[in-house]
Structure formats: structure tokens, C-alpha cells
Design a protein around this nucleic acid. Sequence first.
DNA 1: CCGTTTGCTGGACAATCTGCCCAGCGGACT
DNA 2: AGTCCGCTGGGCAGATTGTCCAGCAAACGG
Lengths: 168, 168
Amino acid sequence: MGVDRLDGRLIQLLADEPRVGVLEASRRLGVARGTVQARLDRLQSSGVIRGFGPDVDPAALGYPVTAFATLEIKQGQGQDVRAHLATVPEVLELHTITGHGDMLCRLVARSNADLQRVIDRVVGFAGIVRASTAIVMENPVPLRIIPLVRQAAGISPPPEAQAVGSED
Amino acid sequence: MGVDRLDGRLIQLLADEPRVGVLEASRRLGVARGTVQARLDRLQSSGVIRGFGPDVDPAALGYPVTAFATLEIKQGQGQDVRAHLATVPEVLELHTITGHGDMLCRLVARSNADLQRVIDRVVGFAGIVRASTAIVMENPVPLRIIPLVRQAAGISPPPEAQAVGSED
DNA sequence: CCGTTTGCTGGACAATCTGCCCAGCGGACT
DNA sequence: AGTCCGCTGGGCAGATTGTCCAGCAAACGG
């Protein structure tokens, strides 16, 4: 298990240009097509690559506000709260965590005002004792995985090591 | 701007089966191929769909531990801290947030022990005053976007509204 | 109310890619 | 030495893509 250099380069290539097919990838990587096909199959069946789902921007959907909410849950209500949150579309992600906050969830909303509505809906549930929300202002490092892939694959130094700044 | 029913169905289809091509998608959706192509082009150029990058699982790369760290930054050190964190592969995501914590970042590590190394590296920087870390135990709702797409597209009720539980 | 613009349909074409199979080859393992 | 495994290089039929076109209907603007 794990990924080698070729796997890493393949993943990087796919991340850079998702449209490349197996044939083109084999040309770019300088290996036979069958090799790329085999690697791709292995990466997918081993779960390293979960899929190639479209990367949808919530902001472009009309939800430009992102926030993180820490929730404190009443003992024994975990399952119910999870089920409740799973039904709220604006809850993009939910984790149970260590520490006094019991859950951490990522929310989006149409505006700061709309965020209130979302939060009300989120916390409007018996099992939730308290919620603490932090609104995201900037997103200097958008969700990324390539640097980690490079490290795991033993690929030397990322070509760029600065370049900071983005919106959200 | 915005997405209509067809856009929503297309995005869902792509999310369910990323391998479908334009032709197959047109068959599934019951519209002409040209229509699907036009919609896809529009969704991408309008930024709703950012891309189709491979969805890599950190756990499968050998980083099964996820954590969120709230960082408190020394005044005026924001830029430097961002640049610093951007160089750490285990930092998958970084946000600046409202509230007393100034930044929130998502970390991964090879183990709980390894997490200490990662945190040391993260906070081992002059501009960071304090860090508070929460380890993720479970991930009942993995990062998702489809429910929001459905809502934005005006697609009625999600077929499943329960089904909770997952790992991380 | 009419002309125009826009979006979708249904079809056609060449070029390309995919899925699949095969033989050979070299390194690693037993 | 014998065997397994991964990669190479090639071939082939079938499917898909990129592109362009004409017809149409609904929405739009005057």
C-alpha cells in the first residue's frame, strides 16, 4: 500500500488537467498506456482516489458565506443530532471531535443574514445544548491534497512554495 | 447566474458516476448531446464547477488522523503565518475566521503521535501565539455538496434523508 | 404584433480514445 | 533455476469527442 513516484505524478497530472485521458496521461508521464491504466485502476480500487466528482463552488451556487460551528451535544443525543444535521443542505460537513465542543460542522449561507436562518435551523434541535459559530473571512489555503501526495510519493520539493492569498 | 433543474441533475449525475461522458449523460438526462455539452461548458466557465480533480483520501495515503486547529495570531503577522502554513503539506486547508481564534486549519497526520510533530511544525513559528487542537473522531457527514445543489436547483426532496454514519 | 435572439434538437463527420487482448522482457522472490 | 509481477509496444473493434448545421419554439424588445 502507498503510492510511488509514478502514482504521485499521475495524481498531480489528473489534478492539474482533469480532462486528460489515459492515453494522453501515458504520453505526459512517459510510460505505456497499459501502465497508466493499471495504476489508475489500482489507485481507485485501493481507495486512494475515491472518485472524480465535480468540484462545485458553493459561492457560485449563491452561498458565498462559509462558517464553522462548534456544537455541544446533550449526552446520548449524538445519533439524533447527526441525523438532524444530515438533513440540512447547508451543512456541508460534520465531524465529531475531542474537546468540549462535541461536533464541528461547516456551514454555508446566502448572506450573513441568511446565516442566522441556517444556524437557527441547525441548533433548533433538542439535543443541541449550545453552538459557537465562526464566520470564514478568507481562505488562504483552499482544500488541497497535492502537497501531501507529493510527500507521500516521495516527490522532492513542490515547485512553488510561496504564493499565498485567495478568497472565500 | 444560478442553476436550473437540468444543471442540478447533470451535477448529480456527474457526482454519482464521474465516468459518464457527455454522450452517456445526454442519454441519462433525456436531452440532446449538444445541450449537455453547452450546460457543462457554462457550468465550468461560470465557475459553478471548478473542475474534476481526483478526490484523494488522505487516510489511504497513510494519514488517517484528521484534526482542526484554531490559531491565535500576533497582530500583523497574518501574511507570514499564511505563507508558513502553506508550506506544510499536512495543512489541508486554512481559513481566517471571526472570533478570538484568528485562523482555523485542517490538519492530517500519520497517527496521534505524529500529530504532535505536525502541530509542532505548524505552531513553530513566531507569529503564532497559541493553538488549540481538536482531533476528529468520526465524520458523520463527509464533505458534500449535492444536497445544496438540489436546493439551489429547485429539485424537490432528496431521495434519502437518513443514513448517517461513516468513518474518518 | 412582428422580427430577433437564445436554447434545444437531431444528425453527420473525421479524429481520437477506450476497453481488451497478447507476446516479450527484466527484476524480484522462492 | 523457476515463477510471478509489472511494464512495454502493438493491434483491433466499438464508442466518444469536437465541431458544424438546419430546423424550431419560446422568450424578448420595440
